[in-house]
Design a protein around this nucleic acid. Structure first.
Lengths: 336, 336
DNA sequence: CTGAAAGCGCTTACAG
DNA sequence: CTGAAAGCGCTTACAG
């Protein structure tokens, strides 16, 4: 590998002068600078970042531990947002993907720390509680889409309660009185919070809470959000004496199934049934007909906010709620 | 930051002995080893990888330039596969995401080269041709889900022609004689190849090729696969005097739209129309009813194969076709 | 404007 | 089994 000394020899100068040129030090004669620059190109010289790191005692690297965010649809936007802000601050991200595997997480953490990352981001592909390994406290760290039971670290999570409220309010605004909720696995944080938002919206609208209108559309799968099966949920709602006229679906995959399931009862979304949902899966929501009105997860914004926090040097360990945005298509409206 | 010397002082030994313990050199007395180990833990010492890199003249890092593979649904599996094989060889991946932006790609490349990556992977989120920057040739490099017009680099791409054949053959096997194809934007490599596979299957089955049965379900959007709009495509097929009894859909999003569009004509997938498709988007295919039979993109396997190639030290620059797998659900079958 | 010295934290031979 | 020397490629003061 060609080093600064090789360039110096080629340019007929001391290696210190080469260093000056590389670092844009103004104290170099123009003629010398040009000569050195030519040698750099001729030899295809590239500074060795390891040597720089060692002298500067800093790496310029931020570690990003991804718990499946890069392999789950659209959660990768967390990484995208983080990368945007990091690059504004001339830092680069070192990404390692772990699959909720403790041993792999520990290995990745050790590796990142040996590389002297200046900060750490731990991001999960769904909103959940995590156990924070103690090493995280050795550098500034932040959690994204997850939180620590001890609240020992700042966390950036989606505001699922507000989203639950908004998804319900959209239907309230259309005059619906019987609004059902097909809920996620109650073991999941988002399920609890979205349900709470649903109840708050009903309460505020003066509508009664009817437990029969809340059904579960996802099998219990421990802490992992799994495939849904809305068949029983829909059957239960259709068996009611007084059927709902609108449904808040726990996620877009459930909503998608509901479109098909309702057809068995001769009910069409957008005609006899209004629907809202969560996540804004771009693969699903715009391709349904009518288009699905859904609450978009703020992946990109969580990633950005988390990195902005790291650079702000704040020391406020609280959990920040990042709002969803309403993506209004047609499914919350009824056509004559 | 605590260094090897601090540990040596604490343990009352020379720093060289500490280095031996850290590197599991057997030539250390057990008693000394234990004492050093305790000091390492007491001081929370971690070897500085930059210093190691400088001495060893190698980084242990493989650069992974992701053209949106980490932000597009399931393409992240390329990264997952790459990471699996890399970690088997004790290498770690340094991932940078670019969004098909030349300047960003160049910056990322410079950064990775300054970090002395030992190899480079350039991966695209959809099968396409790319211009390979000349710097890629300075270290062993490989392309994933994309290829170079000059064929100057080994490339691992999905076998779209074979997938087109298989998707069609599934319907031929069910006795269909009039099989339509709703094609992708013809500017996309996959569209051409899948069409070729479709034609080969018809030919082999002795079925005539009818140009009226091939319609386009995606608007032209340059080189980027965009949202599809299958409405016109389906309308054209339904207007035919002799309608198809089966359709090969260019991708799962198109198939999803087709389920809904056919209902307007009183036609149900799985009853009056058989369907196959491509991609196996796990968000879509299992949630349709009937479940969508589709050809799964070999993302994980492409990532694995590419890294295996890098470690094999082969010098064969050819393009390798990685097979899709058939994910048979119910949509290719007709129920009475 | 240019250069010689020292040192960042390690490891690789070489002695003892 | 343990240690002193040299050097990886750079940058930071300090001279001139």
């Amino acid at each position: 590998m060609v080093s600064i000394k090789d360039v110096a020899t080629h340019a007929g100068t001391s290696f210190k002068t080469v260093s000056r040129v590389v670092n844009n030090d103004p104290a170099v004669r123009e003629e010398t600078r040009v000569r050195v620059q030519q040698s750099i190109e001729a030899l295809n010289y590239r500074p060795n970042s390891a040597a720089r790191m060692m002298r500067n005692q800093k790496s310029g690297v931020i570690g990003f531990i991804s718990d499946e965010v890069v392999t789950q649809p659209y959660a990768g936007d967390i990484l995208l947002g983080a990368q945007q802000v990091a690059s504004e601050h001339d830092k680069i991200l070192m990404v390692v993907n772990i699959e909720h595997n403790r041993r792999r997480r520990q290995q990745s953490l050790d590796m990142l720390l040996e590389r002297r990352v200046e900060a750490l981001v731990l991001a999960s592909y769904f909103h959940r509680e995590v156990e924070v390994p103690p090493e995280l406290s050795s550098v500034p760290s932040v959690l994204v889409n997850c939180f620590d039971s001890q609240a020992s670290l700042a966390a950036f999570v989606p505001d699922d309660e507000q989203a639950g409220f908004d998804a319900t309010q959209l239907l309230v605004d259309q005059g619906h009185k019987r609004i059902a909720l097909i809920s996620l696995d109650p073991a999941i944080v988002a399920a609890q919070l979205r349900l709470a938002g649903y109840r708050r919206a009903l309460l505020q609208a003066g509508l009664p809470f009817d437990a029969a209108l809340v059904v579960q559309g996802e099998e219990e799968l421990g802490m992992t959000p799994g495939n849904c099966n809305a068949e029983t949920a829909v059957a239960n709602l259709m068996a009611l004496e007084s059927r709902p006229t609108a449904i808040v679906c726990g996620k877009d995959e459930i909503a998608m199934q509901v479109y098909f399931l309702l057809l068995r009862y001769g009910i069409r979304v957008g005609h006899e049934m209004a629907l809202t949902s969560f996540d804004n899966q771009r693969l699903i929501a715009p391709n349904l007909s009518p288009g699905l009105t859904t609450m978009a997860l703020p992946h990109l914004e969580m990633g950005r906010a988390a990195l902005r926090y790291l650079f702000s040097a704040e020391a406020d360990n609280s959990t920040r709620l990042i709002p969803f945005s309403v993506i209004a298509r047609e499914s919350h409206l009824l056509k004559a």
